[in-house]
Amino acid sequence: MLFRKKKEKQPSNISMMDNKVNDDFVAEKVTKIKDEDVELVMDNEEAISQKLSNASPLRKYAELGKIMFAMLKDVKKGNYPNVPWFTIASIVVVLLYIFNPLDLVPDFIPGIGYIDDLAVLSIGMGWIETDLHKYLDWRLANGENA
């Protein structure tokens, strides 16, 4: 296994506008992530990054996506050890969900197609924000451009 698994974390109590997209939904998906899913995200990095950059509601999160990909790469290479599996799985769920055009609210619906993507991104970020900050601090301490 590429990454160590961590005990399941209790989902937070973030309230969501759409009751279909909530912590329980995302938590369920996170617990089902496997190493193959991590590889799927890595293989589709360019397409996911392009979607983040080209979709108006998601554009401001493009840089965040780059940081997530960089973290996954450093963990996979063994450069940045001791990342909880829950963090890796959360990143994978968020990126795969954004990549999927036919999710709970299909992306091609004008005006509301990205609401669920933003909700999943917000939930995931709420769970892993501390780990992303630690990663960025590590990159700065090691002289890498953040």
Rank of each mutant, 00 (worst) to 15 (best):
V92K: 03
S53C: 00
K29P: 01
S49Y: 00
P110I: 13
K29A: 15
T31Y: 03
A55T: 11
P110V: 13
N22A: 12
N54L: 13
S56I: 06
S56C: 00
E63L: 07
N54M: 11
S90F: 03
V30D: 07
N79H: 06
D43N: 10
K32T: 12
A47R: 08
L72P: 02
A62K: 12
A70P: 03
M42T: 05
I14D: 07
F86K: 12
G65I: 07
K29N: 11
V83I: 08
G65H: 00
L104M: 05
M17G: 03
D103E: 14
A89I: 06
L95P: 05
D35K: 04
S56Y: 00
N54H: 11
A47K: 12
D18C: 09
N79W: 01
G78V: 05
K32A: 15
P84M: 03
F99Y: 15
V94E: 08
E39A: 07
V38A: 03
V105F: 03
F69Y: 11
P101R: 14
K60D: 10
I88A: 01
D24A: 11
E46C: 00
W85Y: 12
I109W: 06
P57R: 02
P84V: 02
F99G: 05
V30S: 08
L102Q: 14
T31Q: 14
E36V: 12
L40T: 12
D24K: 15
V38M: 03
V93G: 05
Y97R: 02
S15N: 08
I91E: 02
V94L: 08
D37S: 08
L96D: 15
P106A: 08
K76F: 02
K51T: 08
F86P: 00
D35S: 13
P81C: 06
D103I: 04
N54T: 09
D103F: 10
I109H: 04
A62D: 07
L102R: 13
F108A: 05
I109E: 07
S90H: 00
R59S: 13
I14H: 05
V105N: 12
Q50V: 09
D107N: 11
N19T: 13
Y97K: 00
W85I: 05
I48C: 01
S90Y: 02
E46G: 00
N79V: 04
E28C: 06
F69C: 00
S90A: 11
N82V: 05
V26Y: 07
V26P: 08
I88D: 01
D24W: 07
V38R: 01
A47G: 00
D18E: 10
L95T: 07
P57E: 07
I48F: 01
N13F: 10
A47W: 02
L102C: 11
D23Q: 15
A62E: 12
R59M: 13
V105L: 13
A70C: 10
P84Y: 01
N13S: 13
V83C: 01
K32R: 15
M42L: 15
A55I: 11
T31E: 14
L104N: 13
N19D: 14
E28W: 08
K73W: 03
D74L: 04
D24N: 13
V38F: 02
G65W: 04
E39R: 03
D24G: 09
V83N: 02
K77D: 11
I67R: 04
P106H: 10
K20I: 12
D107W: 05
Q50I: 08
I98L: 10
A70W: 02
V30P: 04
P106T: 07
D23F: 04
N44K: 08
F108W: 14
D43W: 00
M68N: 02
N100F: 06
